[in-house]
Design a protein around this nucleic acid. Structure first.
Length: 569
RNA sequence: CGGGGCAUGGCGCAGUCUGGUAGCGCAUCUGCUUUGGGAGCAGAGGGUCGCAGGUUCAAAUCCUGCUGCCCCGACCA
């Protein structure tokens, strides 16, 4: 591709709308353009990378035996009513009406449609197992789209759905997808990790996420330094302390703590460690109740864990200040456990405390020397906090470390969540109708591109992993308007590389060297060749990898063999 | 949804407080010079100042309403 005929428009300045680095670089390098909040066009340079990612995915999905199809973006409401997600999915589901006032949705995912296909077309266990996938645009009406294509409203996803006659086959199919995903992410050249996950809104039992590791990742990942345990922090178990609780030593005592609403203020006021205090969080319960959740002062509540407890509203909602006053007699900041009349869940670590501090259910007052059983009864111990770096690993070996990741893939064993309500059944060997077992497997295709940049960049721009770079080689010809010799060599080299099937971006623009170098680096093309008067006298060209600090010279006659030797094996 | 902020040429911004008919840098176009790290000079094009009302002799600027966009938002119980 000749850059003189490629309308790239790189920006020196960062558009104000972009906060994260990948978004800034994608805009500056002209990979994408924003059309509206969470809606992006992919310009030619960006599309090349996107298609490389798609190609890797397609090849590995096909290799794993999955069958590609395409389903509509717009789907009839009836299907979503059947699966109950019409009412369960919430405002992220974009609902639209056609000219006849019939309800439709812009598909945020395609379980309903594929299940409909399955129930029509799959009749017999003999047709199973089968795995269908598509690479298709999804729409999720995010509350707050941000970070460019990382959290856009419209995005491209590879979604696959497998169907099985029994659970054993589902597990096998799931395992095959795990392996395929591992190959896919390995081939993209990204550093990633597979972790245990919460299955969230999609539903189902077993699930794992694939995360690209990057400091700016939205998710926290906990992994063990002692074995291969890894989990999303949302799903990482926090083990109960190994030592038993001490016997009470202090008497219960009420102290004035004027203005000490937060744990930090309280701990400072009483000159004690936050770990000696507990936070009593009042959340909405199921029905018209509230529930108290208790965590140690130095711990954070884990909403995903908490909302699974019996009696706690799912999704988790903090009670309003008015509800807190009504339930406890005091305002937020002074809520405590003694005399509290509602269901109480205490995190294992909080439950292991003796002689601790909590609110007194009275403004500007706290209680010290509080003890479970003696002063507070009826609390149920549960794991409701986030695991912390240094906690013992739930696997029993090693301790947890925390890293940040960008979720780019998620695989689920759905079981019969959709097949049962939607009556997707086949006849088994005995001739009985049985609901299908389903698995579903997603990859955020557009997000991978942003994640790749988050993980691979420097102050000059993008550094593409070679397998997904828009071009393999950038050929920079300096002063080719002046020097016929440079032009001839560059043209010949361009033709030669192109004929050899190498993807070359040929910078034949009439621009100054600094402009060309800066653009090549911003665009992040892995291999750079420079043709200039300077080297040609000695018959030399110049090579530099995007990650290299220095250029190297090599004989011009030998260019094709040389550049091939530089490609990753 | 709650809170905060912004909307002026393709991009980044100034001008708004104190009304007088729009400016800077980048980008674009032309010419000359320049050419190994985002050139210099000379010239040019491009903006009904988010939209709709209002006040005024006069509105980017003051007032009202609307729209769009950006940022933050359990961890306080």
């Amino acid at each position: 591709m000749r850059l003189s005929q490629y309308p790239i428009n790189t920006l020196k300045e960062t558009p104000a709308e972009a906060e994260v680095l990948s978004h800034q670089l994608m805009l500056r390098s002209g990979l994408i353009r924003r059309l509206a909040a969470g809606l992006y066009s992919w310009l030619p340079m960006g599309l090349r990378t996107l298609q490389k990612v798609e190609r890797i995915i397609r090849e590995e999905m096909n290799r794993a035996g999955a069958l590609e199809l395409v389903m509509p973006v717009i789907q009839p409401a009836e299907l979503w009513q059947e699966s109950r997600r019409w009412s369960e999915y919430g405002p992220e589901l974009l609902r639209i009406k056609d000219r006849h006032q019939r309800d439709f949705v812009a598909g945020p995912t395609h379980e309903e449609v594929i299940t409909d296909i399955a129930r029509r077309d799959l009749k017999s266990y003999r047709q199973l197992p089968v795995n269908f996938y598509q690479i298709q645009t999804k729409f999720r009406d995010e509350v707050r789209p941000r970070f460019g294509v990382m959290r856009a409203r419209e995005f491209i996803m590879k979604d696959a759905y497998s169907f099985h006659v029994d659970e054993a086959s589902l597990r096998e199919g799931y395992r095959a997808m795990y392996d395929a995903y591992t190959r896919i992410f390995t081939r993209t050249g990204l550093t990633f990790r597979a972790v245990r996950a919460d299955s969230g809104a999609i539903g189902g039992d077993v699930s794992q996420e694939f995360h690209v590791l990057a400091a700016s990742g939205e998710d926290a990942i906990a992994f063990s330094d002692g074995d291969d345990y890894a989990a999303n922090l949302e799903a990482a178990a926090a083990l109960p302390p190994s030592e038993p609780r001490r016997a009470p030593q202090q008497p219960l005592n009420k102290v004035a703590t004027p203005g000490a609403r937060t744990i930090e203020e309280l701990a400072r006021f009483l000159k004690i460690e936050p770990a000696r205090c507990v936070k009593t969080l009042i959340v909405e319960g199921t029905e018209d109740t509230v529930v108290a959740l208790v965590v140690r002062g130095d711990h954070e509540l884990n909403a995903v864990k908490a909302q699974k407890l019996p009696g706690v509203a799912n999704p988790l909602r903090m009670a309003s200040a008015e509800r807190v006053v009504k339930a406890t007699g005091t305002e937020p900041g002074y809520v405590g456990l003694v005399g509290l009349r509602c269901r109480v869940y205490a995190d294992h670590s909080a439950f292991a405390l003796a002689d601790f501090v909590c609110g007194a259910n009275e403004k500007d007052m706290h209680l010290t020397g509080v003890n479970w059983d003696r002063d507070v009864t009826g609390a149920v111990a549960a794991d409701i906090r986030n695991a912390l770096e240094g906690d013992p690993s739930p696997s029993g070996r090693g301790h947890l470390k925390i890293a940040r990741g960008i979720e780019v893939g998620h695989i689920f064993q759905l079981g019969r969540k959709y097949s049962e309500p939607m009556k997707a059944v086949v006849l088994d060997e005995a001739g009985h109708e049985v609901p299908l077992y389903m698995g579903c497997y997603g990859i955020g295709v557009t997000r991978i591109v942003a994640a790749a940049i988050e993980q691979n960049h420097d102050e000059r721009g993008i550094i593409w992993p070679e397998p997904i770079a828009p071009f393999q080689v950038v050929l920079v010809a300096l002063q080719l308007q002046k020097s016929t010799r440079v032009r001839e060599v560059a043209e010949r080299l361009y033709a030669e590389l192109a004929a050899a099937g190498i993807e070359v971006l040929y910078d034949d623009r009439d621009a100054r060297p600094g402009v060309k170098f800066a653009d090549a680096e911003l665009l992040g093309i892995p291999h750079r060749l420079v043709v200039a008067e300077r080297g040609l006298d000695a018959g030399k060209l110049e090579y530099r990898h995007r990650r290299d600090a220095q250029s190297t010279e090599f004989p011009a006659d030998d260019a094709l063999a040389f550049i091939r030797s530089r490609f990753a094996p």
